[in-house]
Every structure is written in structure tokens, then in C-alpha cells.
């Protein structure tokens, strides 16, 4: 059945499963039923079952991919709305971001090595907290597997979106500014979209977190890894 790998079929399935999962999540009120996660799993099973490769899926999928970059540009709007608050606290924001970025890089590398990951996998995980385009760049620059990085980035984002608020609460982070910032720093745009649902202020600081951590990771990761003797 050649129709099973038709690009319009594959792309429409992606839309419909996502919408279905979104409704299911709303109906059950379960955060774990994350639409991104469900769509990923269902589509991967579909492709494996009918033996369709990823390149074939991407013939349609790239039209969804295309909107990723414009969507990140759109994050400039919540950022603009909070600009005056952001300007008043440049110092705490910057210091927190540098701390979060360095802690993230060190912790993921140390943990991955402790758990016995191979060098290639450790390198693929290093930039996992930042948004896909940056993470892929960094990953290939330091000798990781970009495709694995992309998948881990999305999974990290989904985990952040699901568990992030709980972690924020348990770590006794009280201000919505600190919480939003943490969310964006740890779980990039996917965490930010969860933050946006909470409140616009939360979302704005989350997009600030993802921006600054994205820039810092792009600049610091290769350097830090060299210091650690990993490259």
C-alpha cells in the first residue's frame, strides 16, 4: 500500500493525532498525556509498523518543521511586553542564567558519565536544555549525534512542561519571575509554551530564559567542554 506513506496522509495524521491527544489531555486532566509525546509515540509506531523511513515522513513533516523558526521569532512579543520589568533586574537575571547554564552543562555530563553513557551520547546530551536549532549546532560542533540531540531536546522539553511546575514548587521557588526563568532555561520553547498557559508574565520570563540560555550555551558549551577535557 503506497498510500500509507503518502506525505499528505502522514502530515494530516500528525495534525489529527495531536488534536486528538490535546482533547484527551483536557478531558482527563492528566499532564502526562502530553500531546507532543503522544503524537511522537503514535507516529513512530506507525512508521515502524509500516516500515516507512524518517526521510519519507519528513517530505510532509518539513512543512511543520518550517514553522518552528517563525514560532521562535514570535516569542519576541511576550518579551517586549515585559521589557521594562526585565531592564530593572538585569543583574539577577544574568547571574541566574549563567549559573543555570553552567549547572546544566556540568550536571548532564557528569550524570551521563556516571550512568555509563558513551562519549558520543554524552556529547549529544550536553546541549539538551536549549532549543533545537541551537542544540543541533552545538552537538555537531562538539562531536555529538545531532539527530539524537534533537530527539533528546524535545523529550527534555516535554518532561519540563509536564514536571516543571512540580519541581519549581518542590524547590521552593516562589516568584513567578524565577519560576518562568527556570522553566525556559531548563525546557526551552516547549517548557515556555507550558509556562505561557500559566500566565503571560510566566511565559515572558520563560522565553527570556530560553533566549539567554540558548546564547550562553552556544558560546560556553564548547569552551567548558574543553576545560573539562572532553573535546
Amino acid at each position: 500500500m503506497e498510500f500509507l506513506e503518502n506525505k499528505y496522509l502522514l502530515i494530516s495524521l500528525t495534525f489529527l493525532i495531536y488534536i486528538g491527544a490535546q482533547r484527551l489531555q483536557k478531558a482527563c486532566g492528566l499532564k502526562l498525556l502530553n500531546p507532543i509525546l503522544i503524537t511522537m509515540c503514535v507516529m513512530i509506531c506507525y512508521l515502524l509498523f509500516f516500515n516507512i523511513d524518517y526521510a519519507t515522513y519528513q517530505e510532509g513533516g518539513r512543512y511543520i518543521d518550517f514553522w518552528l523558526k517563525p514560532a521562535i521569532v514570535a516569542l519576541g512579543v511576550p518579551l517586549y511586553k515585559q521589557l521594562s520589568t526585565i531592564r530593572r533586574q538585569m543583574l539577577p537575571l544574568l547571574v541566574a542564567e549563567i549559573a543555570g547554564c553552567v549547572a546544566g552543562l556540568f550536571s548532564v555530563i557528569i550524570l551521563a558519565r556516571l550512568f555509563g553513557a558513551s562519549h558520543e551520547v554524552v556529547m549529544s546530551l550536553a546541549p539538551k536544555a536549549v532549543t533545537t536549532p541551537i542544540a543541533i549546532e552545538v552537538s555537531s560542533a562538539i562531536g555529538g549525534i545531532p539527530a539524537l540531540t534533537a530527539a533528546v531536546v524535545v523529550s527534555t522539553g516535554v518532561f519540563g512542561g509536564i514536571a516543571g511546575f512540580q519541581i519549581i514548587k518542590l524547590s521552593r521557588i516562589r516568584s513567578s519571575i524565577a519560576g518562568g526563568l527556570s522553566m525556559g532555561t531548563a525546557a526551552h520553547a516547549i517548557g515556555t509554551s507550558a509556562a505561557m498557559e500559566q500566565s503571560e508574565r510566566f511565559g515572558a520570563y520563560s522565553s527570556l530564559g530560553l533566549t539567554i540560555n540558548g546564547l550562553l550555551t552556544a558560546l560556553l558549551a564548547p569552551f567548558l567542554l574543553e576545560v573539562m577535557g572532553m573535546i
Binding site: T14, L47, Y57, I64, A71, A150, V153, V158, S193
Partner: peptide, 14 residues
Amino acid sequence: LGFFFVPAGIGLIN
């Protein structure tokens, strides 16, 4: 926003 990440996530298959 999350929807646009789905194809990259499906890349996990590779």
C-alpha cells in the same frame, strides 16, 4: 509552539 516540535521528536526513530 509545541506542535512545531513534533517532526523533530519523531526523528528519534533514527
